[in-house]
Every structure is written in C-alpha cells, then in structure tokens.
Design a protein around this nucleic acid. Sequence first.
DNA 1: GTGGTCTAGACCACA
DNA 2: GTGGTCTAGACCACG
Lengths: 123, 123, 123, 123
Amino acid sequence: MLLKLDFSSDQPIYMQIRNQMVLAVARGELRPGERLPTIRALAEECGINMMTANRAYQQLRQEGYIVTDRRLGTVVASVKDTAGPRPETVEALRLHLGELRLSGVGLDEALALCRKLYEEGTK
Amino acid sequence: MLLKLDFSSDQPIYMQIRNQMVLAVARGELRPGERLPTIRALAEECGINMMTANRAYQQLRQEGYIVTDRRLGTVVASVKDTAGPRPETVEALRLHLGELRLSGVGLDEALALCRKLYEEGTK
Amino acid sequence: MLLKLDFSSDQPIYMQIRNQMVLAVARGELRPGERLPTIRALAEECGINMMTANRAYQQLRQEGYIVTDRRLGTVVASVKDTAGPRPETVEALRLHLGELRLSGVGLDEALALCRKLYEEGTK
Amino acid sequence: MLLKLDFSSDQPIYMQIRNQMVLAVARGELRPGERLPTIRALAEECGINMMTANRAYQQLRQEGYIVTDRRLGTVVASVKDTAGPRPETVEALRLHLGELRLSGVGLDEALALCRKLYEEGTK
DNA sequence: GTGGTCTAGACCACA
DNA sequence: GTGGTCTAGACCACG
C-alpha cells in the first residue's frame, strides 16, 4: 500500500489518502478484512501529522469502507455492494463527463475510457 | 442562467458557480461568444459578494472556458476542442467509477449512466 | 501599418497600440515625418473607441515618438537618438532577463536572442 | 528579503511584489525550498492588506515560481529550467530593446548592458 | 498557526 | 458602466 501524496495539491491530504484507499479497495489491492497500518505508522510513513492520518480514517469509517476492531485495529470492511450510486458520485460524473466533452473527447472515446477505468477494479 | 448555490456546502461558492457554468456550457445553454452577467450583476443576483463572483470568473478564465473582452465584458470562449482531457478529469473519473463499482453498479449500468450524462450535452 | 490587438489581454488596448507603433518606428516601418491615420480612422479600422485611439496617441506624443502638426495631422517625430536609456527600460530588461535565466536560457543563448531582437530594428 | 513598494505607481502592488520576488529568485537571494513569509506576515511587513499579499503569491504560484506546501506554508519552487522562455518575455524584450535602440544606445552597448543584467543572477 | 474563503464596502483605469 | 485593485475586517478547514 503505497500512497502518493501531493502536499501542494489543493485537495486536502486526508482526502488524498481517503481517495487512494478507496481506489485500492476498488482495485482489490486492499481486501475485506485486511489490516491497515495504525494511525501512527501511517503518519510516520507519509511524513504527515497524526491528526491528518486520523482524519482520513474517520472519513473512510464514516463512509463504511473500513471498520475499527478493538482487537485487530483498523481493517477493510466487507463490501456493501447494494447501496447503489451516491447522488454526489453521479453529480461528479456529470461534471467530469461534461468537461471531457468540452475538451474534445467524443462519445465513443469517452465511453471507452470509462470502461477502462471501471474495469481496472475488476479482477 | 439560473444558479443554485448551497451556502452551507463545504465546496466554496465560487467553485459551485464554476461547476454550474461549465455544465451550462457543456449543455449548450451558454453558447460561445455569449455575454455573461457582469460580476456585479452576478453577485447581486446570487446574493454574494462581488469578489466571490470575480473569483468564479477568474477560475473559469484560467481554465479557458471564458474570456474577458475589454470592450464587451466577459463572454463564453469559443471551444478549444483540441486540448484533450485534463489529467485531473481522468483521475476524478477513475475515482468516481471506482466508487460506482463498489456501490454495486455493474459495468453495463455504469456505462449506460455515463452515456446518458455525456449526451446531456449533445444537442 | 497593421495592428494586432488582443482585446482579452491584460494590457490596455491603448498600450498595445503604443507598443506596436514604437516597434514599427524601431523597425523603420514608420519613418520620421510619415503621417499616421486620424484618430477616427484608427478607431474605425481597429474596432475600438475613439477615446482609446486618442489615448494611444497622447501616450506616444508624451514620449516624443509622434508630434501633431496643425496642417499635416499626426506624424512620426524625428528620432531623438541622444536621450540614453530610460530607467524604466533598464528595469524591465533586468526583470525579463532574470525570467529568461530562470526559464533555463543560458547566457550565450540569451545574448544571441537579444542581438537578434535588437537588430530587427537595424536596416 | 526587503521589498520596496510604490503605492502611487500605476503598477498594482501585487505585481510589484511578484516582480521583486522573481528578481530575488533570479539573483539567488531566495533559494529553492526556502520558506517565504506567511501572507499575514508579508502584509504586515509591507503595510498592505492580506488579500493583496495573497494575490502576489497566487500570481507567483500560477507561474510556477513558488509552491504552497500544506505542511510548511509557501516555499520557493525548485527551478524548472526546462520550460524555455515564455512568449511574453520575448515580446517584452523585443519592445524594450527597440526602445533602447531608439534612445540612442548602440548594439554593443545594449548587449553589454544585457550581459550585466543577466549575470546579476549568476553567482 | 497556516492558508482559503467570504463580506461590505471603496477608488480607479479603461473603454 | 466595466472590470481591476485594494482595504479591514471575519470565519473556517487544515495540519
């Protein structure tokens, strides 16, 4: 689990961690039940504040991607699979597909890209 | 051109305006060359400060969606069409398609959704 | 005398006209004594306000590049040749040569560029 | 890092700051990775508003001279060195070298001046 | 404590 | 009348 953080991004560090962990789950790199590093370890490894690492886990916990077990520490949650798309996700897709179109990407090309990106997570 | 702003959103107001204007351009509701409201008019209409409206336009200008003509004020830019997708857009799509998959949406369903969202902008 | 104006530049239109006329004089495209278009003609030709054209001529007059003769209208002034460099010009060169260096242009390359740009005006 | 601001100049304050910081980087007075004053400190030091200081940093950030690290604050960017000259820089040089020539400065003298100004930044 | 965002004004250059 | 700039505050997210 290697995180690439951009400290000069306009996106908060905790959100970058959250996003990359979600992607890792989607790709199957992180499997349900797998143990995640402690906040302390994560903070040290990434050169960030422990509060920031904590915030990332809070976020992931709140969204149901991870659970904190008293004995095992923090582990990847079992997938929920039934929730259906969040409205925010759809809105974000709408915006980014619009941007794609405005940057000159045609429908077929856009759908091919989406297929590729989706299938990254299918093993 | 009606904007819906959520003043309690964690997303900055100027970014909400930016996003909705990008969508309006993508949908063809705003056409290249069309004049946009002055920052003062926009500010009044939305009940926000002039500087916030200015910030939204600065953002859009920087991304090439609008240009400020010294004679006419601010107008929608002629499409660039050749730029190709911004890396950030692709990254965002990757993330949101991953979330889609994790929430139980299958490939076909996801692609159908993407097609629908993309075609909103095609008249 | 063809002017290329960028109405969305951050540089005022009158200043763009001023700069291009100075360059034309430097290049010898405009010769001392040569008559310039009237304010009205210039404004019409460029699609700008007469006040803007007037402002450009005022600026050039003030800097000694043109003179307005009651009978002939506005004509290019005879060169002054002895004034020496204006402090602003030197400051601007200092800044832009600094930028050049920071963008990775070496001394020899920079001087070659300067020579070329200078000699554009030498016939 | 001492800034000299002319509050009655026609050049915006934030641009004066931007120019002097670019020069300081070019001269090596500001080294890559070095931390810059916070916008608050800069504003107080210069007797200007925070937003004006912010504007200066925004400009420098956009041009790649500085980056804002979420942990360390604002620091001088590592040199890019590969970008090549911006077209605007070349245009500005063309103009100012033309003015130099019209003010009676000969080629050799002009090149000597350019060499001196360029080498100010070479330690 | 840092930068990011926002407000409610104001003045000025430009067109 | 337009955008550009600036002020003197304030609140909040982030680290």
